[in-house]
Design a protein around this nucleic acid. Structure first.
Lengths: 219, 219
DNA sequence: TCCGTTATGTAATCATCGATTACATTTGGC
DNA sequence: GCCAAATGTAATCGATGATTACATAACGGA
């Protein structure tokens, strides 16, 4: 809400809104993001309504609805990426499986806490998938990260099995599936406790990690 | 296309369609199902159009769009269930992990080959989730199946770990995630080979099963 | 400082969709 | 046969994405 100082050059005091919106593009993205977070359908008109602007105005900034949704997805992805990176920088550099675990945990934590945003990022239902090269590239980078971690783990002899590709796909499917099950209502309301589901996420990740890790002597 | 013999009692030869459609409800469900399979949005009007009927006619059979989509989902779920059951009846009764594997494989095979139907069943985005008790119950039964298999496996001492719930959730998340990754376009076109993705599905399931299974002596 | 070009928002309009209502026709039981 | 219920049609409404013509602000060069 703050920091939205419209540049009212001529200080005609009573004029509530200047003709030109301060940064409509930005405000529209935020409105759509918030709209998505509230769970309802995201319509261009509603976003315009929230920005107190005419229904046609958004199309000055986005050629069509898809473009707006793509921008929203990119913003959400950016926030997602920031959190992932933050977690990874303080994960133990020498233990690839611990890093993989931390990655998966951060991924799920964000997806649990920002379900609508995660949906927009991941689904390609809100806008034509692949219409945003930035999103695709960003996603590819994350996939590359997991690949590297698994290769490292294999090189250190930490894995029980040689074939890396199925393991990597399985890891992605597991995490993605958990996040989507949450989104798609496959978890019963599951207690009032908000954190309970995150605890389960952790347990699930541990099942997988310990499943691919070579068992330590004496266990 | 065949077997849609309208009951033209009075054989007024030139009358193309009788006023009353033979079984409009059924035809609408099929049309919507096919519409979904073609990937486009499923609109009531388009379904009506395909049934060669007025835009308002469907609402004589379904109170609203959701009800139609729920009926579609139930039909898709029925077909899904038939295939799963068929596979399970001829899976080895004594080996719960083999049964679990067969189950997962059948699940993914169907999801790969009927992506749109799977989406309708699983997502609750096409109609208010839980508006169909039959669907919910059916789903619960499948979940119960996996639970039973895992309990059996634990009883036979086939598992490496005692905690069943995380394993069960992980299994569901893995399979669901793989299916959804396919739906959501997370797999690059992945070769022209249609079967390649099913091969990968098998490998992924094997990674998981061998991860939770107690390693046999000498491996 | 003024003027004109460009960026940006508004107003009006269109087609599509889900949904409702009034009306028409067929069907089937009495 | 006849009448009520079932079923389809036509007309209509409000919301939406999208396009177009028009209005106004913003900005830079003369």
């Amino acid at each position: 809400m703050p920091a939205r100082e419209p540049p009212k050059r001529r200080s005609r005091a009573a004029e509530a809104r200047p003709y030109h919106h301060g940064d409509l593009r930005r405000v529209l993205i935020d409105a759509a993001l918030q709209l998505a977070a509230e769970g309802g359908e995201v319509s261009v008109r509603e976003a315009a309504r929230r920005a107190a602007v005419s229904p046609g105005a958004p199309f000055r900034h986005f050629p069509n609805r898809d473009a707006l949704m793509a921008a929203v997805a990119e913003e959400a992805q950016r926030r997602f990426r920031v959190e992932i990176d933050a977690v990874l920088t303080q994960a133990p550099a020498g233990d690839p499986l611990a890093r993989l675990r931390a990655f998966g945990l951060a991924y799920l934590r964000w997806a649990m806490r920002n379900p609508a945003h995660f949906e927009i990022i991941s689904t390609g239902r809100y806008f034509a998938h692949g219409s945003s090269p930035g999103l695709t590239r960003d996603n590819a980078e994350l996939i590359g990260l997991t690949e590297r971690m698994l290769r490292e783990a294999a090189a250190l002899g930490l894995l029980r099995q040689g074939e890396l590709k199925p393991i990597q796909i399985a890891a992605r499917a597991l995490v993605y599936g958990f996040a989507r099950m949450n989104l798609d209502g496959h978890f019963p309301r599951w207690g009032v406790e908000e954190g309970e589901i995150e605890t389960m996420a952790e347990a699930v990740i541990d099942v997988f990690i310990s499943g691919i890790a070579k068992p330590k002597r004496g266990s």
